[in-house]
Nucleic acid binder design. Structure first.
Length: 481
RNA sequence: UCCUCCAUAGCUCAGUUGGUUAGAGCGGCUGACUGUUAAUCAGUAGGUCCCUGGUUCGAGUCCAGGUGGGGGAGCCA
């Protein structure tokens, strides 16, 4: 019996006339009383393999079990296809059903399903063309992230998933505890006594690996983290998940400009990698998106297709604009003067709403925008203060249709300045002692940023909802599968 | 969490001013067809109209509350 060949390999290097075995899941079966055509997909590629069964040679009882969704093993001679639509096909000599799929119950049909419906059957949706393509691209992007940093001499650092510091200020956290939820030990105030908890104090799931990442950079020069991140925010949007993956490089001796250069090079590299390595899946996703937009009004359609957008990123520099310049552009915009904005920009210091970010990216510059040097009052405590006394060396990269894809900064490396800022913002200093010590012992200028991996995936796949670019999304009220 | 829209067959949806037995397309099943491409053609089965309560002679349709989902906002990556 021939050894199993993956469909991807078989299509790249077809061995015509050779007995071949293929295993996979049935997409459709068609035919008449003489011949049956079975489309098989094994997930190795977006393409199906057509198996051709001569009904006089194949057991009809077995063929009856070959229904959409069933898993089969097919052996036969690989031949050039008589039909159009595929170059090769498999003439079935041996057919085995590995796993039946009752057609009255199997929910996936050979037709287009809504993404909302597929989310409800997340255990089966990887078997669709769309999710197969998304998951293969996702893998390629994971691999490309590691390759990019490895090629640059960065070291991957595993920062903790369970953290004891509650001062990261990046949102609500999920508590980690082994205390009895019904009858926890109580302290004198009648509250749960976390000194008796597993770690001896309160612990949570991480909301960022940045602070620990900085510790790594202060020894290895250039590090990056790529791990799961958890936010217990009650966010119900197409851009937020409670559990997502984040990439956070941290570089010693980088100033804000170096940081922006790296971030732009990184995003450009990832777009190019997708074009170079995932073009078949991207072509499918491109067509899918075009098909979907056909039902939309002209003005709601994207100006560029998915593949054109990826090429655009590769070919064009990002627009770098200081916060102060951005405020001037917004204040002088017709949108602002005609009070089309819900939040009118009146003066320097205002926090930018997503309508403003969208205006800058989608209407004004029509390209990715890097905003930098924000007012210190709207940014985190660890960002490097500028000499003007009112701004910090922060930067956000804004993408069309996604908004903020990267947030980063040069870090405050001066011990006294950092300590003063911690006090100003009422952060408990004792919980930050180890972070402060990096500024006390051999401090160095350094910078870093955070890239939301699923937001990158939205950009690269053209999917609209972040729940459709991660295999098993976690959102408020949803942790099934 | 707020605003807004939605929930009818396995899926996508229609269902008139509240009126008798709730429909279509796709999918499933049965059959026809000598090579199909989401095959085609014919036939057929399939319903807790999201849940609870209310108004009414009568509710898929109206009202209240709840649950679930979409889109937008805030928070952010």
């Amino acid at each position: 019996m021939a050894k199993r060949t993956k469909i991807k390999e078989l299509l790249i290097n077809p061995k015509i006339g050779v007995e071949t075995n293929v295993k996979g899941w049935v997409r459709t079966k068609r035919g008449n009383k003489n011949v049956a055509f079975i489309a098989i997909n094994d997930g190795s590629t977006i393409h199906n393999l057509q198996a051709v069964a001569d009904l006089s040679k194949v057991n009809e009882d077995i063929l009856k079990l070959v229904t959409t969704g069933a898993c089969i093993s097919v052996t036969g001679q690989l031949v050039a296809s008589q039909g159009s639509g595929q170059s090769v096909e498999l003439l079935v000599s041996d057919l085995e059903v590995l796993g039946e799929a009752n057609p009255e119950e199997y929910p996936l049909q050979p037709k287009k399903h809504s993404l909302e419906f597929l989310r409800e059957i997340a255990h089966l949706r990887p078997r669709t063309n769309t999710f197969g393509a998304v998951l293969r691209v996702r893998h390629a992007m994971i691999f490309a992230v590691h390759k990019f940093f490895n090629d640059k001499g960065f070291f991957n650092l595993h920062t903790p998933i369970i953290t004891g510091s509650d001062a990261e200020g990046a949102g609500e956290m999920f508590r980690v505890t082994t205390l009895d939820p019904v009858n926890p030990p109580k302290n004198q105030d009648g509250k749960a006594d976390f000194s008796q908890d597993f770690f001896g104090h309160e612990t949570n799931l991480t909301v960022s690996g940045q602070l620990e990442g900085e510790l790594g950079a202060m020894a290895l020069s250039d590090i990056y983290t790529f791990g799961p991140t958890f936010r217990a925010e009650n966010s119900n949007t197409s851009r937020h998940l409670a559990e997502f993956w984040m990439i956070e490089p941290e570089m010693a001796f980088y100033d804000l400009d170096d940081n922006m250069d790296l971030a732009e090079e990184f995003l450009t590299y990832l777009a190019q990698y997708a074009l170079d390595n995932c073009i078949e899946d991207l072509n499918f996703l491109n067509e899918r998106a075009l098909e979907e937009e056909k039902n939309m009004k002209q003005e709601e359609r994207s100006e560029l297709s998915l593949i054109e957008r990826l090429k655009f990123i590769v070919d064009n520099d990002f627009q770098r604009v200081s916060y102060t310049e951005a405020i001037e552009i917004l204040r002088n915009s017709n949108q602002n003067k005609k009070k089309k904005f819900k939040y009118i920009i009146e003066s320097w210091g205002a926090d930018l709403q997503s309508e403003h970010e969208r205006f800058l990216v989608e209407s004004h510059f029509k390209k990715p925008v890097i905003l930098y040097n924000y007012p210190k009052n709207i940014k985190a405590f660890y960002m490097r203060q500028n000499e003007d006394g009112k701004t910090v060396r922060a930067m956000d990269i804004l993408f069309p249709g996604i908004g903020e894809i990267i947030g980063g900064s040069q870090r405050e490396e001066r011990y006294d300045v950092l300590k003063a800022r911690i006090h100003e913002m009422d952060i408990p200093e004792e919980s930050m002692w180890w972070y402060l010590e990096t500024r006390k012992f051999g401090t160095a200028p350094h910078s870093g940023f955070g890239l939301g991996f699923e937001r990158l995936m939205i950009f690269v796949t053209g999917m609209k909802n972040i729940r459709d670019v991660i295999p098993f999304p976690r959102t408020p009220g949803n942790a099934e599968f």
